[in-house]
């Protein structure tokens, strides 16, 4: 990805309805010309082809599209392009540094925190947001933090064990 680039969104509508937004995506500055109401999930998956972030319900109920926006967990299906302007977005592709698995990802791998894996990127982002704010959450706090992320495969047993392992391994560095 270039340091900065402009992408025109394919649409048959006239471009005078577009706005120019600039934001940081996984640490890199991007500029886009988009319709102001375009969903962040469509920018991420459709325009930038960052397919680690998933789409499932499209109405903010399942958390499959969870990303970080200015340090907070958001559902990318509920955020519109105009809100993205001047923000910092982190997706699953942006959390492991130097090609090393993040401690949370390692814990998911070791403890069976996933099966089909479709909810996993969103779940990992939610766990990251939790631990970022609270390095030693209680059972209740873990449940609260992950209650917006649905998993149909694991029954959450493996996810809970993964979170506990990630916490135990003292990950507290973002």
């Amino acid at each position: 990805m270039d340091e900065s680039r402009t992408i025109d969104i394919l649409t048959n509508k006239s471009t005078d309805r577009h706005i120019l937004i600039s934001f940081h995506m996984n640490g890199r500055m991007l500029e886009l010309s988009v319709e102001p109401t375009m969903r962040l999930i469509d920018i991420i998956r459709g325009q930038l082809d960052l397919t680690g972030t998933k789409i499932s319900c499209g109405i903010g109920r399942c958390g499959a599209c969870s990303v970080m926006m200015d340090g907070h967990l958001v559902n990318a299906c509920l955020v519109m392009a105009y809100q993205v302007d001047q923000s910092q977005i982190t997706t699953i592709e942006g959390i492991n540094t130097n090609n090393q698995l993040h401690t949370i990802q390692k814990a998911f791998l070791e403890e069976g925190g996933f099966q089909c894996g479709y909810c996993t990127p969103g779940m990992v982002m939610a766990v990251k947001a939790l631990i970022y704010e609270n390095s030693n959450p209680t059972e209740e706090e873990i449940k609260e933090a992950l209650s917006g992320n649905l998993c149909r495969c694991t029954g959450y047993g493996g996810i809970i064990r993964s979170v506990q392992r990630a916490i135990k391994e003292g990950m507290n560095k973002n």
């Binding site: 997706t91 698995l101 990992v124």
Partner: peptide, 13 residues
């Protein structure tokens, strides 16, 4: 075997 690609989001469904 499919784990790493799933936890990183690299796996293309």
């Amino acid at each position: 075997p499919d784990g790493a690609a799933k936890v990183t989001g690299e796996l293309k469904y």
